[in-house]
Amino acid sequence: MTTESLWLREEDDRPPRPRLSRERIVAAAVALLDAEGVAGFSMRRLAARLDAGTMSLYGHVGSREDVLDLALDAVFDEIPLPAPGSPWRAVLTEQLVESRRTMRRHPWVPELRATRPLLGPIALAHSECFYAALAGAGLTGPGLIAAVNALTSYAHGHSAAENVWRATVRAPEREAALRRRVQHHLTRHADRYPTLAAHAQVEYADFDGSFELGLDLVLDGIEARLPPVT
């Protein structure tokens, strides 16, 4: 008898691998994108993170691009929807402040948002809320579209630039030293750049305060274009 009996084999004490699901795949994809960015994302790396075979992923998702769409929609769930009946400025401020925070936690989001339509159910719920706030304030037609573009472009542009800055200048002490050098340079050349030397305030590094003040300025401009209340 050459075949070893089942009952004589050592049992495998390793816990069984969790079953794959679309939810597990998307959660792992978000984590992989956080770690590696879009350029470092692949189905092979995703499968390795899940301790699964690459082909096993395709029983739950159609392609790499599908996974990216699902991951992008999933992070919108981190942005709370406002309470019904909230004032339009409060709705937009909360949505954009939270959107920036989400893009800071997930630096890959601005890149994906710029390259694909936001048609996932969570993203569309936020877009509905955004458009409804501006439409309820009285904007319609091209004015409404322009207001949406101005607000979203401001938030995305600010977040993308901040992400690049934070990825490049990581240490706070290095950032402070660089800002001091730039301010010193402007001061030395104040005869050429008097306005910059006096007002640029290069050493001001409050990204949160700067974002929220800039957002108020954009909202003030939109409010000035609203039709009069009758």
Rank of each mutant, 00 (worst) to 15 (best):
C129L: 04
C129S: 14
F130Y: 11
Y131P: 00
A132K: 07
A133N: 02
A133L: 01
A133P: 01
A135K: 05
A137R: 04
G138W: 12
G138N: 02
G138H: 05
L139A: 11
L139W: 03
L139Y: 13
T140Y: 07
T140L: 03
T140F: 02
T140W: 01
G141E: 04
G141Y: 05
P142W: 10
G143W: 00
L144H: 02
L144E: 06
I145T: 14
I145H: 15
T152S: 13
T152C: 09
S153Y: 01
S153R: 03
Y154A: 06
A155P: 03
A155L: 00
A155K: 06
H156R: 14
H156A: 11
G157K: 08
H158T: 09
A160S: 09
A161Y: 09
A161N: 08
E162K: 03
E162F: 06
E162L: 14
N163K: 10
N163A: 05
V164R: 15
V164Q: 10
V164Y: 02
V164F: 11
W165P: 01
W165I: 07
V169K: 08
A171R: 15
P172C: 03
P172A: 11
P172G: 12
E173W: 07
E173I: 01
E173T: 09
R174A: 12
R174D: 13
E175S: 14
A176Y: 05
A177C: 08
A177T: 13
A177E: 15
R179T: 10
R179E: 00
R181S: 12
V182W: 10
V182T: 13
H184E: 15
H185M: 14
H185G: 15
L186I: 06
L186F: 15
T187P: 06
T187W: 10
R188H: 11
R188M: 12
R188E: 15
A190R: 15
A190L: 07
A190T: 05
A190N: 01
D191R: 14
R192G: 04
Y193M: 12
Y193D: 12
P194M: 08
P194S: 08
T195W: 13
T195Q: 11
L196S: 09
L196R: 09
A197L: 00
A197E: 00
A198T: 05
A198V: 05
A200R: 00
A200S: 04
E203A: 10
Y204I: 03
A205P: 00
D206A: 10
D206L: 04
F207E: 11
G209I: 01
G209Q: 01
S210G: 10
F211S: 01
F211E: 04
F211Q: 07
F211Y: 13
L213G: 05
L213Y: 06
L213C: 00
G214T: 01
L215W: 13
L215K: 08
L215G: 09
D216E: 12
D216V: 05
L217H: 14
L217S: 11
L217V: 12
L217C: 12
V218C: 11
L219I: 05
L219M: 13
D220M: 02
G221Y: 02
I222D: 01
